[in-house]
Every structure is written in C-alpha cells, then in structure tokens.
C-alpha cells in the first residue's frame, strides 16, 4: 500500500508541476498548450548542463531557466504580438520536442536517448515530490491571499478592468506565463534527473496535455489541479501494479490517459474557465 501511494506521488509529480504552471498562466489569461514542450525542454536542458558540468543542481537550475525562457516566448507571442495562443503553444511543442530530439544527436552523438548523467538521486526525488505539494499550497496562497495573485486573477477575468485600476495586463500575463514555464520545466527536471538520470526522446509522453486536463478538472485552482494530477498518478501506479495480471501492456499503458479523458468528458461542462482565458488583450494606452 505504501508502495502504491509512493508510486502515485512519483507518477503525479511531473504532472503537478506542469499543471501548476498551467493554472498560473491561465489565471492570467494565457492558455499554455506548450506545457508538453516546456517539460521536454526542462528535462533535456537539465541533462545537457549536468552532462557538461557534472553538477546535477546546475543542470536542474538550467532546466528551469530554459522552461522560463520558453514560457516567456509564449508570453511575448500571446501579449505583445497577440498570436493565437493555441497555435503559439503548439508551435512551442513542436520546437521543443523536435529541438530536443535533434539536440540529442548534436550533444551526445546518438539519437533516441542521452548518456547517463549526474542526477539528483533518491534524496532529490523525495525533495522534489514534497516540493511539488508545497508549491501547490504556495501558489494557492499567492493567488487567493496576496495582491499579486488578485492582480493575476483580475487580468484573466477582465484585463480592461485591471488596466483601469492601474495594472498592466500584458506585463502580468508575460510574467505569469514565464513563471508557469519554469514550473512545467521542473516537471521535466523531475522526470529526467530524479526519476531517471538521462533524457530519452518523447519522455514527456503527453504529461503536458494531461496537465492541461488537470487544470480544467481542478477548476483552475492549484489544489484542485494537484488533486487531479494525483488522480492521474494513481491510475499510472495502478497500471504498474496490474502489469502482472496478463492484460496486454499496451492496453494498460493507455489506462491513465483513458481515465483522464473520461474524467474530463464528464466534468468539463461544469467547469468555468477565467472569462478572458485565451483572449489576446489590446491595451487602451
């Protein structure tokens, strides 16, 4: 039982990080379809820097920074240039996933997977699992207890009203999307450098999209999204537990995704996104 709970947490953690990133940016009014790419770029950059420096912490920091930069790229596209956010996010996924696949050949001289690098180890894994839960609570407090959080929410609901009140919606959105990118990249760092010690092509495996579902399932609320990610994690853990039961493994691997789909289909109608989520804002001034 303890094993199952721990496995659930391990499987949920990358999704929690990405979902928190999604909650933050969507609360400010930017839909982040690029979470998947931000997970991948966090994982890949972390592994590369760790490989180059031999320092896992430096790798992790670099991974987070890369996620923030990719988030900022989406943020600038969505605010300054008012690009359709779904298209921009999809573009970011293509760039990040393709870039990482190509980067494997450039940096490690081999396709498919990187060499093994210095990683964060079991201690790091435990710390990052706990940190994900702590981050969820902190983000909740930020959004619902602080001025900054109120301003983020105002920008996601009615950016014009926020601007009238002296808040710069474009700056808030850019900041929220970049920070959200850093959160998602933490999920990638966890995958590649805490659970494992290498980057392999496609290792994000749709977790960014599951995180998007978790954002909706969790009603754009950090704690709710965390709960939804744990739900996904539990089905992933279940899949490992049931692998010995003789059911074809491909079918079992699909289980968490099917569970997410069913949950979302049954739930999405009742959830209400921030009113200005995904709508580019044209400032008055």
């Amino acid at each position: 039982m303890i094993d199952f709970v721990w496995l659930t947490l391990i499987k949920a953690t990358p999704v929690i990080y990405a979902a928190l990133g999604g909650v933050l940016s969507e609360r400010s009014g930017v839909i982040n379809i690029g979470l998947e790419g931000m997970i991948a770029i966090g994982a890949f950059t972390g592994v590369c820097v760790s490989y180059a420096t031999g320092n896992a912490q430096a790798g992790a920091a670099a991974g987070v920074l890369a996620g923030a930069l990719l988030g900022a790229l989406l943020g600038i596209a969505a605010t300054r240039f008012r690009v359709e956010q779904i298209v921009a996010g999809t573009g970011i996924n293509l760039i990040a996933l393709g870039g990482a696949a190509y980067g494997l050949v450039v940096v490690f001289g081999q396709p498919g997977a990187s060499k093994q690098v210095a990683a964060l180890g079991t201690g790091g894994e435990t710390a990052m699992v706990v940190a994900a839960l702590v981050l969820a609570v902190l983000l909740h407090l930020f959004l619902f207890r602080t001025r900054g959080g109120l301003h983020v929410r105002a920008c996601g609901e009615n950016p014009r009203a926020a601007e009238v009140a002296g808040i710069d919606p474009l700056r808030v959105r850019l900041w929220a999307t970049a920070t959200g990118g850093a959160f998602a990249a933490l999920g990638g760092v966890f995958l590649a450098m805490a659970e494992l010690d290498l980057y392999s092509d496609g290792m994000s495996a749709g977790r960014g999209f599951i995180a998007l579902a978790a954002v909706i399932f969790g009603r754009w609320n950090p704690l709710g999204a965390t709960g939804a990610a744990l739900f996904f994690g539990a089905f992933s853990a279940l899949q490992y537990t049931l692998q010995r039961s003789g059911i074809p493994s491909e079918l079992m691997q699909a289980l968490p995704y099917v569970a997410a789909l069913v949950a979302l289909a049954g739930f999405a109608g009742r959830a209400r996104a921030p009113a200005a989520d995904g709508i580019p804002y044209v400032p008055v001034r």
Binding site: L150, E157, N158, A161, A162, P274, A275
Partner: peptide
C-alpha cells in the same frame, strides 16, 4: 471583474496589505 467580490473590485490595485497578504 464579474467573478471578484465588491471589495476586490473597488480596491483593485490599491489593496491594503498586512505582511505578505491582503
């Protein structure tokens, strides 16, 4: 902002603070 409260709307951008929170 329809989904904020009256005080949040009235004081938006000028909320009184105590420590880190409103």
């Amino acid at each position: 902002v329809d989904r904020l409260t009256v005080w949040e709307n009235v004081l938006l951008g000028r909320e009184p603070r105590r420590g880190w929170r409103i």
